[in-house]
């Protein structure tokens, strides 16, 4: 029985198969990176997001998990839009003691209200780690002619006040500013443990700097080298410059957030470390002086939950 971490790219409305060496007892999936882009440079959109769903008959009790992806972006470029999806799985019996892995979808975040999941998880004793990551989001403007100013999502885990024994709920928040109100939901992976002896290292990475960064050794690995790692997006925000062109904000072209898998280096520069790079981009296009001009976001921030397993 052990923890396993895998990542896989899903393009457009495609799917990915995560195959493990033994039976899955519990799992959670989340976004490590995503790229949403429209077919044309500069598009007025009313809907943005993506959804991930496990396919029935896969997952717990089997050795493979199939995740289906659906892009929820108007005028989406399906060939150019993708997500890097990470799965944290417990291989062994169901309901492993002290470990709680699950996804909770559809947390309402209309107008940046704080939504909580409807299914708190009873942990039996107080958790040492109670944390969440974004597994999808779906936002919609009330008006179909809304300019796009800024977008963000964030999730967390909170003690459930309504339970008589220790329990945690997922809490989510979201924002999409433009020319009308928005409604939306976020989907989240919940990872909670009541101990740190399960071979799962968890760490919080607030707003990594541009360029390469290094994750310090995490206590959950007991000093062992890192065998696998995933960077789960916990929150992000991007916003065009408000005074970019002195009038309307640019129309949407592309939103990218996350950590590319191909730049993650395990045990670099030393055993127990992980090197990585965080990438964020929000691009749009506006007509200035009768010609198209590409604009990039001014505000950019992403925060991550890093999950690691030991090698061997």
């Amino acid at each position: 029985m052990s923890i396993a971490i895998q990542t896989s790219m899903i393009t457009g409305n495609g799917s990915a198969t995560f195959t493990f060496p033994s039976t899955i007892g519990a799992y959670a999936y989340a976004l490590q990176q995503f790229n949403l882009q429209t077919l044309q440079l500069g598009t007025v959109i009313q809907r943005i997001g993506l959804a991930l769903r496990p396919r029935d008959g896969t997952g717990v009790g089997t050795t493979s998990l199939i995740i289906d992806q659906q892009m929820l972006l108007d005028q989406v470029d399906l060939d150019g839009s993708w997500a890097q999806v990470a799965v944290v799985a417990w291989l062994g019996s169901t309901n492993p003691p002290g470990l709680f892995l699950q996804n909770q979808n559809g947390i309402t975040v209309d107008q940046m209200s704080s939504g909580t999941s409807s299914s708190p998880v009873s942990t039996g004793s107080p958790p040492m780690y109670a944390t969440a990551a974004i597994a999808g989001f779906s936002y919609q403007f009330a008006d179909d002619k809304s300019d796009f100013l800024g977008i963000g999502a964030g999730v967390g885990a909170t003690p459930d006040p309504y339970a008589s024994t220790p329990s945690v709920s997922v809490v989510g928040s979201g924002i999409w500013t433009g020319d009308s109100a928005f409604t939306g939901v976020v989907d989240a992976a919940l990872i909670a443990t009541t101990g740190d002896d399960l071979g799962l290292g968890l760490g919080y990475l607030p707003n990594p700097a541009w360029g390469m960064n290094v994750v310090d050794r995490l206590p959950g690995l007991g000093g062992a080298p890192v065998g696998a790692a995933a960077f789960l997006i916990q929150s992000f925000f991007c916003q065009f410059c408000i005074n970019a062109i002195g009038h309307d904000t640019p129309d949407f072209s592309q939103l990218t957030t996350g950590v590319p898998s191909d730049v993650v280096q395990l045990n670099v520069p030393s055993d127990g470390n992980v090197s990585f790079r965080s990438v964020q981009q929000l691009c749009g296009c506006a007509i200035v002086d009768e010609g198209p001009v590409i604009f990039s976001a001014e505000n950019l921030v992403a925060n991550y939950l890093v999950a690691e397993t030991a090698s061997g």
């Binding site: 107008q111 940046m112 958790p127 040492m128 780690y129 885990a157 740190d196 760490g203």
Partner: peptide, 11 residues
């Protein structure tokens, strides 16, 4: 108008 705070417990 709003303020929201989302906590995570990391050890």
């Amino acid at each position: 108008v709003g303020v929201s705070l989302t906590p995570n417990l990391i050890g």
